[in-house]
Design a protein around this nucleic acid. Structure first.
Lengths: 132, 132
DNA sequence: TGACTGTTATATTATGTGTATAACAGATAT
DNA sequence: ATATCTGTTATACACATAATATAACAGTCA
């Protein structure tokens, strides 16, 4: 699980880290029960402060992706990620709306949009399965 | 064109304003050549500072949605919005990726995702056509 | 005991957001 | 011409967030 942060991005470091872990789970490279590096070692590896890593971990815990324990460290939630509920669907819609609006303004049609989303979705299916 | 801002949102006011104008264009309630309120009058109407409105307008101008002139004020770009280029496609993908990853983690399948995107896309087709 | 975990507490620096005034420059209508 | 409207620019201030830097604390485990 290699992490690559963009120091020039407008997205905060802890958000970039959080997103990459979520993408790791989506692509099955991180599986339920897997251990994550300690906040100190990961911070050392990618050259940032341990509090920044801790902030990402805490957010992921709050969102139900991780379980964090005193001495064991952080684990991908053994029971899997909480399924989408009504609230999550609403938040997802609210986040997608401005992007889809702009895409429509720029001449992207419905089929192009769905194709793009499908390509992104499927890109998470093609990693992490070490069944050769 | 009524604007509704959420003071509790994590999104900055100028971003919310920018998004609502983009959605207005997408839904054809704002058409090429249409005049927008002056920064002062709009700021007065929605109860915020004129610089906040100006920041939204400037961003929209930079993105190609608006044309701003000294004395005429802000207009929806008469030539329409610049079509999606390779750079925009890349930025759109990068923005969508973390959301789609989380949706997949939460058990939303490909069909549910495309359906949601289509519903949002089509919601912009059902407004602003005063052809009764 | 020593080394490792997450946790908490402070402090500092830098940046972004939003507001508040004020003044400037150009266009337009009276 | 003068008053009024535009966007523009310049300062300043308050507030919140992001990221860092140290340090200490409290459990766990070899």
């Amino acid at each position: 699980m290699l992490i690559q942060l963009d120091m020039e991005s407008k997205d905060p470091l802890y958000t970039q880290l959080r997103n990459q872990i979520v993408e790791g789970i989506a692509s099955n490279r991180l599986k339920p029960g897997d251990a994550l590096p300690s906040v100190r070692s990961l911070a050392q590896d990618i050259g940032i402060n341990l509090h920044t890593v801790n902030k990402a971990y805490k957010q992921l815990e709050h969102e139900g992706f991780l379980v964090i324990q005193r001495q064991k460290g952080a684990l991908i939630h053994p029971d899997g990620v909480p399924q989408a509920d009504d609230f999550y669907w609403m938040e997802l819609s609210k986040a997608l709306r401005p992007m889809i609006a702009e895409a429509k303004c720029r001449g992207i049609d419905e089929h192009q949009l769905t194709t793009l989303c499908q390509e992104i979705y499927q890109s998470f299916n093609k990693k992490g399965d070490s069944s050769s």
